[in-house]
Design a protein around this nucleic acid. Structure first.
Lengths: 344, 344
DNA sequence: CTGAAAGCGCTTACAG
DNA sequence: CTGAAAGCGCTTACAG
């Protein structure tokens, strides 16, 4: 069942069928048009996109390469990408690399074979230099989300400034022992946040202390472990910046399990503003990263590239501090917990 | 740059190139084979999947239709689907319908045009009868996740029994005022859980009370609202079953904001066991739905269907109660909160 | 306004 | 073991 069948039933040529069904502005007599539409509907005709793509060299398909959809940051991005893709009748192929070189390579090959018109790549940690060049060489456009050191258009957020803003908030509240649980330091996002943290301490005249900095990996578990490390000692932090909300929530769990009160004993600030952030108790103060909008912007940019329209080379989106319940002034005297006060 | 170029460079025919590159078991002399492999590599040849698919009538692409990847239940499922897809070198096209008929229709058309080999459909609420028949008529296999009233293979979990199990746990703890915040009742999953809740009450000899049942929609917000409704009155519930973890976490937030202690004043049980469930405090008791495994099973089944292998018609996966901190015995005397006790 | 025909890049039955 | 050629289902330049 193909276009020739429609042509036969309508009593016209395949050329005419094609012109009608693609709403070409090629002139076709109204009654001819109607016969075609009628026949197509009667036969339940769905044009073969493979044949079309083969000929036209465009598939209206794009790839979305992310580390892991299970990380609550990526569903937002993906949704943004997909919504604008759908709006322009593009279809998106979904690739979870786990930041694994082998998996990435396989996906790149799969996308190349499927002749995608473009890809959006989010999340670093893998070296995409070769991959992006491959896509580029094969007429697939590339848009990056986040800061990569690659010469492709990208959508970014200023993680450095965002982290600084969060730390300043803590400083403004009176904190001077401010810890940090980082993301995986092979990621630029994580490194930028760490740099911002350090810069903010410096400009507040606070000496850095590695005892209250722990490396995490953007999971709740690493936040829990890091939280225990940063909190369970004398001279502990009175404020913690976490490199994302999952870490922050893990750290809050650690605080609770140690018997520390948030924010009375310890303030916690996250990053991202996932939905859950406003529903944990105390509600999480966090730096909101506009993930959905980043996805939207990336896909919009990709479509412009594909359709050879003008477009900016890099779009910077703002991150904003959302103050909720988990941040407050430090406890009155150092080392004293709300519990010890209560017990007095 | 195509197979003819590779053939020319290797000094063989396209037939031979095809046979070598597809690892056909057709006999090819080793040195010929080598020349082909060499040429393909040198030219950076990536076979055109569109041409291949057009001819073979299979694309090694499947569609994944879900309501919304932003709902933390679906990333797990999607990951399961995608992991086994990748393992078999299938590619997955990603469709978020928002349970919207128009969007669904568009995706179905897009998938049909792309000649996907099959689709897995998760999440009801939309009528997929027409869609599934369309796929079926066009040689695309269909696997459903969850209970639909459609004659297609499916992967399910027994929500009825799972809800009963959760309520029984509360009854065993001594609760007799047990509330329920439902999911959207147009979904069979939500209705099955509600039925299970009612059945468990009945077999425990507890009269149902609509005052402590609220309709939610699987979001934190609806859990918060529902929680306020069920908790903020005399004769309030001492235990709440929530139709998913997001609702449960919303309900816990409501309890906290009212000044109620979980589990001292009120026990809360969720459904799903999302990662966050073990990191909120108190950690959430919940019925673990094996979402990742459901995705895996569905995709595995789909591949068997496509490759015409034997397969079960329906796979039932077990749901297990995970007892953590949010459930405990009811407060000693009715209407008395831990706060009022403390104040005494 | 309409159609005949070439061609997109592959695979495979057939012939040698 | 190897190759010539047909054909998958479309679109479009060309001719009328």
């Amino acid at each position: 069942m193909g276009i020739v069948d429609v042509a036969r039933v309508a009593g016209v040529s395949t050329a005419t069928v094609s012109r009608v069904l693609n709403e070409s502005d090629y002139p076709v007599r109204p009654d001819t048009r109607e016969k075609v539409v009628e026949a197509a509907k009667r036969l339940g005709f769905h044009p073969n996109g493979l044949a079309r793509g083969l000929l036209l060299k465009r598939t209206e398909t794009v790839g979305l390469i992310i580390p892991d959809i299970t990380n609550p940051y990526y569903p937002q991005i993906s949704r943004g990408v997909e919504d604008v893709a759908a709006k322009h009748s593009y279809t998106v192929v979904f690739c979870n690399t786990d930041r694994d070189a082998l998996k990435s390579e396989r996906y790149v090959e799969a996308l190349l074979r499927r002749r995608v018109d473009g890809v959006v790549i989010a999340g670093g940690g893998t070296d995409f230099e070769q991959a992006t060049n491959l896509f580029s060489d094969h007429n697939a456009e590339v848009v990056l989300i986040g800061r990569h050191r690659l010469p492709f258009p990208s959508v970014q957020v200023d993680n450095f400034r965002a982290a600084r803003k969060a730390v300043s908030h803590l400083v403004g509240l009176g904190h001077s022992r401010i810890g940090f649980i980082t993301g995986p330091l092979n990621l630029t996002s994580a490194r930028d946040r760490l740099r911002g943290y350090k810069a903010a301490l410096k400009s507040a005249g606070i000496a850095p202390d590695n005892e209250i900095v722990a490396e995490g990996d953007y999971t709740e578990k690493s936040g829990y472990t890091g939280g225990l490390r940063v909190l369970d000692r004398r001279g502990r932090a009175t404020g913690i910046l976490a490199a994302n909300d999952r870490i922050a929530i893990g750290a809050m769990a650690a605080a609770a399990d140690i018997g520390l009160n948030v924010p009375a004993d310890i303030s916690v600030i996250g990053f991202d503003d996932i939905t859950m952030a406003s529903f944990v108790r105390p509600a999480l103060t966090t730096v909101a990263i506009p993930a959905y909008e980043m996805g939207e912007a990336a896909m919009a940019m990709l479509i412009k590239l594909i359709q050879q329209e003008a477009h900016p080379r890099v779009i910077k989106l703002p991150a904003e501090l959302v103050v909720r319940e988990s941040s407050g002034p430090p406890p009155a005297s150092k080392g004293e917990t709300s519990k010890s006060r209560r017990l007095r």
